[in-house]
Design a protein around this nucleic acid. Structure first.
Lengths: 392, 392
DNA sequence: ATATATAGTTAATTAAGTTTACTAACTTAA
DNA sequence: TTAAGTTAGTAAACTTAATTAACTATATAT
């Protein structure tokens, strides 16, 4: 148990209140007597703390226990609706925003396309503000009840000051709008900005329910590639936010992002289709450079030989990448996200079998929340922030 | 400020005492008035805490300040000799043990060759016990003053229970002896066991004085290769202790350990010497398989062309390895250790120039403590452990 | 009905903080 | 030399929030 602040009686009282609150949140509805046993605090102290927590609205009585003997206990439970938080994903093509309660449950959610045409600073800012205002109005949640916000940003975020750089192309120029300082001015509650893939990784880490000693790599592959790392239970960013920026990793077939992105898959498909001498209708797999790689996955599910061969080749490359990363990092879990995450049914077992040679084989999984990963991570971060503000 | 335990008055008092102690350790000799200002605690509270710390022997008065005005302050300072700790490196060929004070300063140090012949369990255990007994006797430090011990082990250590596996060849069979539970029975103080390279990484991390947000990779290359990672200020072990086990990383020229170990360097030298058509006395570089690679470094320092060419080729491989690792991990600092660390004068600038293409270029350094890295890391870990025990 | 067990409150005590006011000791300058 | 001003450290009174012990309230079992 470390401390940074001086321990005054008031601080101690606050500490004990949150010790009790944590126990209630973690252990569900409990009686005062239970809480006294679990925390080691005396019954009067627990009662007094509960009274204050009820007064603050964080906790409420919720019926009685069915004991075998003795007086029935009054149970108290966490009131997740005491406050709300905002979690958002500012994507290159779309905005997702969610209002969640303090239990992390999303109460109101909206997905919006970004404004067409040139995304200037003012357009971007106005769009953000109006979207958030709109969601708040729809939900009927009062401003005072909103306590924190977190934004997932497709770019590099400086953890020190929340400033933003290296945004994806469609958002370029909006760095100043998405900086933490600016967002906090607009909303105005405590705000964090964080790289989108890092938030996705956090969401998967939490929902996996793994121990704090475990680590997780979120490997996002779509139009581009990215990685998010959770180590010691928190986001590991690395020098200049570069941890998990896997795009530049060299594989035997070339640069990771060139080889494994949807564009890389398309090129691989084109090459293999040209070499393919067997019969059958394979022309539709030769998608044009501007097209998508979606047909390949459909073809695999239909069992077409060429598509299967392409995917086998692709998985060789994917396994090489994951293998290298695991040799360096040894994550407990690797989660596939982005475009790829949605094809876990095809990829996971192929990848699994190819990683047999690895000394420490991680648990493999596909993203369990799909394209909502980032928003969920943002919500979770916002909830954490709101709690931290209350504790302080 | 988090808390796991209930906040009783006694706990609060202890917390405040250690808050003050930390400030004294971090800030050097200070007056009670200074401490009151820095910690935010009132002067009477500080005075009372200091009285208790002096009574416990952790702190002592140390003269008076030279103020410009007013009454001269009595300074108090940390007394590092209040307790002692043991740090050890159990190597394949030798044992290093150190007795250090609570300031981490090594007071007594001994380096011993492991017993010749078959290293059975009993031989290993007796040797350990006698070595430690001997050092304690030499130092004249009483058993009661010894408060913790840490052992660096060349193998995989399970952080959960401190058990040991995959020991290097010479120590194989001594797993049970080096397990934490057994060592704690022998000494008997709180004991930690930890992988040796991880401890070396910790030693470098601490002595570099970097911020907690920084991360460090200790890249040890000798007869074998190993890596230690410090992330969020603590050792990151990864799944099954596999983080930083770089040996199996595939480079363009083959498996990392095969290519970069002293043996790999020797093979590279042999290959290049055979191809070498130039004149000059190069025969001595063709060392026999049982020899060492040491001649190459000497030859480089003498400026011999073949040796220089070999090192250039070797650095290409080294840069490929470090580059891959940095792309995944983005450590703030990379430290070269083991055999290689001692040739930083030759390697560092060559490596530096080859990493120019890297997006996030880490600080490069050679091990600053050489072959004492592990013992220093062990001492530091033991000191931390001793403090943790006192706080609890 | 009575005994026993459990939940939660009240009252007295204790620990450790704070503030306020003091004494002690030192420097500067009339 | 003496008075004024400044800083260090202590003493006393007060405040907060913990504890224990005793009590009340409410349940089940015999």
């Amino acid at each position: 148990m470390r401390i940074q602040t001086a321990g005054t009686p008031k601080v101690m009282r606050n500490l004990n209140e949150f010790l009790i609150l944590d126990q209630i949140i973690g252990g569900g509805p409990q009686s005062r007597a239970d809480l006294s046993r679990y925390t080691g605090l005396s019954k009067p102290t627990v009662s007094s703390a509960i009274a204050h927590l009820i007064e603050r609205g964080l906790v409420r009585e919720t019926g009685r226990a069915e004991n075998t003997q003795g007086r029935k206990a009054t149970l108290v439970e966490f009131n997740p609706k005491c406050f709300y938080t905002l979690g958002a994903e500012v994507g290159g093509s779309g905005l997702r925003i969610a209002l969640a309660d303090m239990g992390g449950e999303i109460c109101y959610y909206k997905q919006l396309a970004m404004p067409e045409g040139g995304l200037t600073e003012t357009v971007c800012q106005d769009f953000l503000v109006q979207s958030i205002e709109g969601l708040l109005a729809d939900s009927g949640i009062s401003r005072e009840k909103l306590r924190a916000a977190a934004f997932g940003i497709p770019g590099v975020v400086d953890p020190a000051d929340g400033s933003v750089s290296d945004l994806v192309a469609p958002l370029r120029g909006c760095e100043a709008v998405l900086a933490r300082a600016n967002l906090a001015r607009l909303i105005p509650v405590p705000v964090v900005t964080e790289n989108d893939v890092n938030l996705a990784a956090l969401a998967e880490y939490t929902s996996s329910g793994m121990a704090a000693s475990g680590s997780l790599l979120y490997f996002s592959i779509g139009a581009g590639t990215g990685g998010g790392l959770i180590i010691h239970g928190e986001i590991y960013r690395g020098l200049g936010g570069g941890a998990g920026e896997l795009a530049n990793l060299m594989l035997s077939a070339g640069r990771l992002e060139d080889v494994l992105s949807t564009d890389g898959l398309r090129q691989l498909a084109n090459r293999m289709a040209k070499e393919y001498t067997g019969a059958g209708d394979t022309a539709h797999l030769l998608s044009t450079p501007g097209g998508t790689a979606a047909q390949i996955w459909d073809a695999v599910r239909r069992g077409e030989p060429l598509a299967l061969a392409i995917i086998e080749a692709y998985c060789n490359l994917l396994a090489e990448a994951v293998g290298s990363i695991c040799t360096v990092m040894a994550p407990t879990t690797v989660v596939l996200g982005g475009e790829l995450g949605s094809h876990g049914d095809i990829l996971l077992e192929r990848l699994e079998s190819r990683l047999g040679g690895l000394h420490r084989k991680p648990r493999l999984a596909a993203s369990s929340h799909g394209d909502k990963d980032v928003v969920l991570g943002a919500v979770q971060t916002a909830v954490q922030l709101a709690f931290r503000e209350m504790r302080a």
